[in-house]
Design a protein around this nucleic acid. Sequence first.
DNA 1: TGTTCTAGTTCTATTTTAGGACCACTCAAG
DNA 2: CTTGAGTGGTCCTAAAATAGAACTAGAACA
Lengths: 174, 174
Amino acid sequence: MVKRTSLQTAGCPVARALDVIGDWWSLLIIRDAFDGVRRFGEFQEGLGIAKGMLATRLRDLTERGILETAPASDGSAYREYVLTEKGRGLFLVVVALRQWGEAHLYKPTEQRSTLVEAKSGAAVARLELRAKDGRVLSWAETKVQQPAAVSCGPKLRRPKAQRVRAPARSRVAR
Amino acid sequence: MVKRTSLQTAGCPVARALDVIGDWWSLLIIRDAFDGVRRFGEFQEGLGIAKGMLATRLRDLTERGILETAPASDGSAYREYVLTEKGRGLFLVVVALRQWGEAHLYKPTEQRSTLVEAKSGAAVARLELRAKDGRVLSWAETKVQQPAAVSCGPKLRRPKAQRVRAPARSRVAR
DNA sequence: TGTTCTAGTTCTATTTTAGGACCACTCAAG
DNA sequence: CTTGAGTGGTCCTAAAATAGAACTAGAACA
């Protein structure tokens, strides 16, 4: 009831995605995983996250198929956490966040980490949205197409038409 | 102390970005704003969010320069919330989330909203990471380059070297 | 064998969230 | 100009999530 709202069954892919990775720590864990972090202790130390939180997050991400556990690559008996194919699919989300952060959240002089091509060390290009034929599209040139009666939030979104001169609802019904 | 950890001053753009939009509702509000939602009541109805939460989120997003208020476009005395330039910069983050959600969170038969080019109604292409010369890059071909001593989490990440044979710390100090 | 690491689990205090009640202001009709 | 409904909030409470510390079992090490 007062439980955190779930978006798992929303009709909007953005909402569903946020249901999986929309909390405070998940994307940071995933970012670190992209950077090669694998062990519980590495995540914990790198993020400064409480161990309990981290254990919960790693379990959830594993259950949801973002991470999987594997025997430690150094031969010890410990486990490590690595991204699944599904998890690696989040790369562009992390990149988009990174590029936005770089552009809008730093003073020009401030130091920051940057994403570069491994081979050359050259910074990567900014992401661009394109049409299938390769034309670059701006936000204004796109729209979201809703299939019939699909909810984008946890509650069903009522059709716009309803808003015009709604008949007075009974106050008693509350 | 037990307050939610802040990442505002982290050295990693991803962490800073998540500090701004990394909570449960912010990106959904922003997504709706991209879809043309402007009024308090529209957000509230569409998202099914508690009014108190929404008021807080809208205030925070406004303070952080993602949204701004404007007089209502219908001539009434009410305000409306519109994305700033900085806010519109989040478009690709939303698109990346959407594409990931579409690819990994839906059964093939399930209905979902899709992003299309407004003019033609044709679905947009998948985002791709490219080098500046236009070559498409995969995750494995990139790396994150850290400037000297930059923290990526809330706590300072200690340099790797430290981990090798750390001197035993006093247990008493706890 | 005993000490230290690693990777957790458990506990508690505090904060955040969800949701409802309440309230002030706006708008439109009579 | 009054009234009733709509809009955009604030405030309150209960439940859940978070942070952080304490504790623990098994692995590694000396």
